[in-house]
Design a protein around this nucleic acid. Structure first.
Length: 256
DNA sequence: CGCGGAAGCC
DNA sequence: GGCTTCCGCG
């Protein structure tokens, strides 16, 4: 039994989930609040990946896999974000390679500009003291998709290939009940920059949560629904209104 | 391209 | 610690 992120998937998806999202309070702490640092490369990648139809970077055929379609442009954007005017793909890719050791990321061999996130490790590395997490991961081994051969996706078949039993990292916060130890929860506050630190508002959250491949949204909706019904009182819940679209929405530094 | 050592920066 | 910069190697 692993917390709320159970493996069963039902047909139900709340039609309103894209309009109203519920998050624990701590999920809204900005990245630059005490205890957290500047934006990290993987935050940035997830952020861009959350924007559907991006020409610079996009999700690949496998769960967590992504393809950098315009390496130099990606480097330029990253450089702008970090204030490094001479950033290029050579340097950016070095940073990506440093993720190999941490097992946050690895290279999809044979595919140009293609890397793959290990969401489980991503969480473990960055948020090691998660209570329920230690139950989730070891039981299923760190990678729930082992039935997928890595060579399998020569062709880009979108759906139903990768069906994770543990949903992706952005859902993991839902596995951490607020319940008894408030102090623990406090420790987590501000530690989810990829949830809360994205440039501006909750609108970005919605983009982010469209995240990786496929059914994640479905699971997400389902999870939300059940949590809303069952345990919402136990959470420090926040309602995030998702602004459907701002004409101002390029208010990030992407455009200069 | 992709890799990883080495040094440097903040 | 998390890159950034540079570089030699395959």
């Amino acid at each position: 039994m692993h917390c709320c992120c159970s493996s069963h998937m039902g047909p139900l998806i709340s039609p309103s989930w894209s309009q109203t999202m519920l998050f624990p309070d701590w999920a809204y702490k900005p990245a630059w609040s005490p205890g957290s640092r500047q934006v990290q490369l993987w935050h940035f990648l997830l952020e861009l990946l959350g924007r559907d139809g991006d020409e610079v970077i996009a999700w690949g055929g496998e769960w967590g896999e992504f393809v950098i379609q315009d390496p130099e442009q990606l480097a330029k954007l990253w450089g702008e974000r970090k204030g490094k005017l001479h950033m290029n793909y050579d340097k950016l890719s070095r940073a990506l390679r440093y993720y190999y050791n941490k097992q946050i990321l690895h290279k999809t061999k044979g595919k140009r500009f293609t890397y793959k996130f290990n969401f489980s490790k991503l969480i473990l590395v960055n948020y090691p003291n998660m209570p329920c997490y230690q139950q989730v991961i070891p039981s299923e081994s760190s990678f729930p998709y082992s039935f997928l051969s890595s060579e399998e996706s020569l062709y880009r078949t979108p759906v139903y290939k990768a069906q994770p039993s543990v949903s992706h990292s952005l859902m993991l916060p839902y596995c951490f009940p607020k319940s008894s130890s408030f102090s623990q929860v406090d420790t987590y506050q501000g530690q989810f920059p990829f949830l809360s630190a994205l440039p501006s508002s909750a609108a970005n959250l919605s983009e982010l949560l469209r995240l990786p491949p496929f059914s994640s949204t479905l699971q997400f909706g389902q999870t939300l629904t059940s949590w809303q019904k069952k345990r919402s009182a136990e959470w420090c819940l926040n309602a995030a209104r998702v602004i459907s679209k701002k004409d101002d929405s390029d208010g990030q530094e992407e455009k200069v």
